[in-house]
């Protein structure tokens, strides 16, 4: 699976790609379908903030994970919706939150109170 020419090409063209581009390229290199890439993106969008909330805000991890489990059907629905016009395949996968997430991550790195950078 690794290395993969798509990843090499991406690294040459854009050394620090936005998150959706990096995720899409990695998913493609791993042999995933566009639907699976969309599901991974949706999953990451909710689990990232959820685990951060457990660490930064001290929220009850049992309650947070129950909430994530309850959101499973929504993830599947969002991923399916993202792939509706997928006659175009990978190219037509949307990334509505980009580059907002990247900008928020840069702000977080400069925040006075933070626990980790990833």
């Amino acid at each position: 699976m690794w290395p993969h020419p798509v990843l090499d090409d991406l690294a040459d063209l854009i050394p620090s790609p936005h998150h959706p581009v990096a995720l899409g390229a990695a998913a493609y290199a791993a042999g995933a379908t566009p639907e699976e890439a969309a599901l991974a993106a949706a999953y990451h969008a909710i689990t990232g903030p959820a685990t951060a909330a457990v660490r930064l805000l001290g929220l009850d991890p049992v309650a947070v994970h129950a909430l994530l489990a309850d959101l499973t059907p929504d993830l599947t629905a969002v991923a399916a919706q993202a792939c509706l016009p997928t006659s175009g395949g990978w190219e037509s996968l949307p990334a509505y939150s980009s580059p907002a997430l990247d900008l928020l991550a840069e702000q977080h790195a400069q925040a006075e109170v933070r626990l980790f950078i990833s």
Partner: peptide, 9 residues
């Protein structure tokens, strides 16, 4: 210094 208790505990 980063250790804190979960509100669930």
């Amino acid at each position: 210094l980063t250790a804190t208790f979960s509100r669930g505990l």
